[in-house]
Amino acid sequence: MVKPASTTTATGKDLGAVRAAQSESPGLFGVAGLSSVIRALLPFVVAILAWWAIWAVLDPPEIILVSPASVFGSFIDSIAEGALPTFIARSLARLGIGTLIAIGLGVPMGWLLGLDEDVAQAAEPIMRFFNAVSGIAWLPAMIIWFGFTETTIQAVIVYTMLFPVAFNAMIGVRTIPKRYRDACRTMGAGTLRIIRDVYMPGSFPSVMTGLRLGIGFGWRALIAGEFVVGTTAGGGLGFFIFDARTQGVIGKVMAGMIVLGVLWLLMDRLILRPIEETINVKWGAVSA
């Protein structure tokens, strides 16, 4: 999968020929001299102003749209009440536990698939199928099996994350050049040694990619799970948003959504991506 988010940092391939032919000057907003921070924040400022303008002009009912100021107010209130911080912590804990379980199950599974052609041929289709069923579609069944409980939410997250993690671990192993293995064999390495010295480190970058992808999917599954099960399973960010909408407090709904987006970006930019990039910088391109 091409990572769409990477487009913001992608290849500083400058002005294409079309643009060159057009001979444009520094930029629409004249921001050539501004720092990149302001440049990144500007679109948000414009978007919030536009939102404010729409709200002021249309004057929509409070259950449709509220002003940015009132969303901010709801945000502060929810923090003061303590509900939001508790729910954030709960959602993150769920995601964390789900991630650990998905790694524990998915990575060895993917390695096995990557190492043995026959196992892969047999197991890949059924895994693709259950991946396509998606964790969310199992929610009703899981509610029957496990009730409106923590277990249901957790099961949906793990189910959702498992496949991307396993598939990428498999791809990681498959794309390691066979010569690495052969070279180790000529140095007298046995199978276990080769797994430890070649397959484990060699598939690591791909496992990280799978993890990022999986957490992205899992995050959405978590929200859906909390919509449905959150009431009795102790809340969560998804529940917070869903509940606010039931009460008709759109300010809280939007505040919750913004928190959701910011949390994901922080996780992605501060934890997941740096790990991936460090590895890439340190090792170079691992697979030939």
Binding site: F242, M257, L265
Partner: peptide
């Protein structure tokens, strides 16, 4: 760019209540 990066981070399911 920055807007879509942010929107992508909460795309789909999170929008359901709204």
């Amino acid at each position: 760019g920055p807007l879509t990066t942010f929107m992508n981070a909460l795309s789909g399911i999170a929008w359901i209540p709204l």
